[in-house]
Simulated scan of single mutants.
Amino acid sequence: MMGWCEVGMMKVLVLSLVAGAVAAVRPSKLLPAAVPAVYVFGDSTLDVGNNNYLPGKDVPRADKPYYGIDLPGSGKPTGRFSNGYNTADFVAQALGFKKSPLAYLELKARKMLIPSAVTRGVSYASAGAGILDSTNAGNNIPLSQQVRLFESTKAEMEAAVGQRAVRKLLSASFFLVSAGSNDFFAFATAMAEQNRTATQADVTAFYGSLLSNYSATITELYKLGARKVGIVNVGPVGCVPRVRVLNATGACADGLNQLAGGFDGALRSAVAALAADQLPGLAYSVADSFGFTQASLADPLGLGFASADSACCGSGRLGAQGDCTPAATLCADRDRYVFWDSVHPSQRAAMLGAQAYYDGPAQYTSPVSFKQLARMRIG
């Protein structure tokens, strides 16, 4: 965890993002794309509709109002867990695209997979997915399966345009990965159900499983042709409204945040070791969602937010005692809320985060920014 002096310094840097964030991340006229395509892997912070196509009553879906109420051009739910665009959309916009590539399952249903895969990219992200296959098992596309779907997509791409063209395309494309929050929620829930506090042995084993699976994901993507990988680490999951509401004072769960912060440090080291020792030619950027979000929550008013602890769409205390549905209470000004629902950031919060990762203060990305990563010449 960061000390308050460090957070204070970060606040100053975060404030500098506000004035130019909209222009930088949502340009009025798209610039030439910095990469030929974007391939997206992860959870609900990036999902643009895959879960709408999954069967089962327990599958998390954002397919009803008020989801999508501020989505440019439609104002309708599309599967994004946001009032509008999400992080994947804003990263894709910064890279020169109109928005995130479409969801894999939507492209398959519309028989558009290969046209999109070779000209724009594909999103495999799935709400509820974890780094571990066991996280919310049966109700999402886990990270490992997302990679397998990309593998099958690649085979179809090669059949359509040839191996050489696909190899060149993938080596220059941007691979965006964000997962882990659901694993931490599941771990905390399991401890609570057992009515015990996690031991150091529990944490060590948990971290070991997460890092092993994450490393396998990066390695497999590399073997399949990825050379530019942008990773968004796990944010301060103890500060989402759904967790805050469990505390009588509405405070963040510091223990859960410390658990996430410890993993983020280990992840950064693990990816650096992979790039240095095992995956020659891999270029990467780790975005610090944890640090950026902490700084934002430390001074929400400075960023134009009126609420940093409550859901805009929900019900009950902190808007976190009910889901975002057509019957939920909806805040009047969505841009003034850090959180859209009890877990996910609002469109504006996602926009500010994406700008920080793409071309913001250097401390929010390591070893390079997403912009620098996209512009690297590989091979």
Rank of each mutant, 00 (worst) to 15 (best):
R334F: 07
Y124K: 02
L46D: 05
V343M: 02
S100C: 09
V40R: 11
H344D: 10
A253G: 00
C239I: 04
T325P: 14
V147M: 12
D70S: 15
A37S: 12
V48I: 10
C252N: 04
L15Y: 09
G84Y: 09
P326E: 01
V166M: 04
V38N: 13
A109R: 00
L297V: 10
Q194W: 07
P326I: 14
A129D: 09
L259P: 02
P280T: 13
A308N: 08
A19D: 01
L303A: 02
G235H: 03
A332G: 14
A275T: 04
M351T: 04
L224H: 07
P32L: 03
N52P: 04
D341R: 14
A109T: 01
G121T: 11
A266R: 13
M2F: 04
L221W: 02
K371H: 15
V243H: 04
Q363M: 15
P72I: 13
H344K: 06
L303M: 10
Y66W: 14
R377Y: 13
W4Q: 06
M1E: 02
T153R: 03
A327Q: 07
G68M: 00
G162Q: 03
A332Q: 13
G322I: 14
D359V: 15
L169V: 05
Q145P: 10
A159Q: 12
T197Q: 08
F184W: 10
L107R: 08
M1P: 00
F175K: 05
G255K: 03
A165D: 02
A311L: 11
A287P: 11
M2I: 00
A356K: 09
D183K: 05
V7D: 06
